[in-house]
Write a protein that binds this DNA or RNA. Structure first.
Lengths: 191, 191
DNA sequence: CATGTTCTGTACTTACTAGTACATAACGAA
DNA sequence: TTCGTTATGTACTAGTAAGTACAGAACATG
């Protein structure tokens, strides 16, 4: 029919994610994405729309990756307590050391003053809601394993807060031991 | 000796703080600060240095305000548990509702890819260290009020994480009741 | 091979913004 | 009043980045 695309859109989204994650939305120019991906601007515009739309696609892809992983970890058999601990522990590499410096793409972009706030907030809110639902569902299902009066809904939200806090402080590249100590202490709420 | 300044530098820093906090560092142009403050660019440069330096002064002023308040609240007599609860509770207006949308200037700026990272990180790190020291000092002093095996150092850090998490999620303008519920639950770690 | 269609790359336009040159205004001192 | 000094405001420079026009390339189909 016509000339085929010379690149895989998903590859480009992956590369764009790395650049956006490292430098932030505003500080990343489309020329940098072109340089990193080898795809020229008109092709980017044709495939993804403008810079905002491209970023939202990158962000949704990022969210989907984390959600997919959370679904797998939180669905595992055994005590819910251990599933949640494993989920939190899995973030340690992203919350500490050199890799932690970039923080969380989702949290970072929430502060970006030049993104289209309406669409962005919807995307982030959907992500957070889904994540919290996964936690809540597991805590409710395993309710019997916890102490009397245990509130799965509040606890799910508290875990979300701790999770966000660890990623927000990740920019300081804390020692992974400190991150682990916090997780261990917070796990005390699940008893 | 010479022509006196026609503005109070501290007033300008206060106005600049509002603008930076609302829009973020990159998305705020010096022209906007000029418009908001009535002070022209050459005067801003003469008084504060370039945009980075101006922002760092604004940020340090922001930090000092929060630290001063924390010192007062955390120094109050009575059980340490209540001092810390009051400190956390004091953040609720900044973590919820309309006002919460802007989040925390310090956390927001940590993700800004065009700020001078070296100086910025130093400033934020100093702030976080000082804040955590205040918490830790109070928890250590009131150690006897807590259960056996209570670890004031880890707990201070956990509270910092929760605090950062609440402010990171503030952009979604959560209901203040949810914020309060999280604080109440986390206070369970102080027993 | 011809044709219609869609993609690609170069080069451009447009807009914005950090930072500054320069002429002038406002002060204190003599 | 005059002079030296420092602040102010206008107007400019220079650089960067988002978005696009357009000519040509690469495919499928007939």
């Amino acid at each position: 029919m016509a000339r085929p695309r010379s690149f895989d859109p998903d590859d480009v989204l992956e590369i764009a994610r790395q650049v956006f994650w490292q430098k932030g939305f505003q500080a990343t120019s489309l020329d940098e994405i072109t340089a990193a991906s080898g795809v020229a601007k008109p092709s980017l515009y044709a495939a993804f729309g403008d810079k905002n739309a491209l970023f939202l696609k990158v962000l949704d892809r990022y969210h989907d990756g984390i959600l997919g992983w959370a679904e797998r970890v939180l669905a595992q058999p055994g005590p819910g307590r251990e599933a949640i601990r494993q989920w939190l522990t899995g973030f340690i590499p992203y919350c500490s050391g050199e890799k932690g410096q970039r923080g969380c793409l989702s949290i970072n972009s929430a502060t970006d003053g030049s993104l289209d706030q309406a669409e962005l907030r919807k995307s982030i809110e959907r992500y957070n809601r889904r994540l919290e639902e996964l936690l809540r569902a597991r805590l409710r299902a395993d309710r019997a394993q916890f102490r009397k009066g245990f509130d799965p809904d509040v606890t799910a939200h508290t875990i979300m807060v701790v999770h966000a806090g660890l990623l927000a402080l990740a920019h300081q590249r804390p020692d992974s031991k400190r991150v682990k100590a916090v997780i261990d202490q917070v796990m005390g709420l699940l008893a």
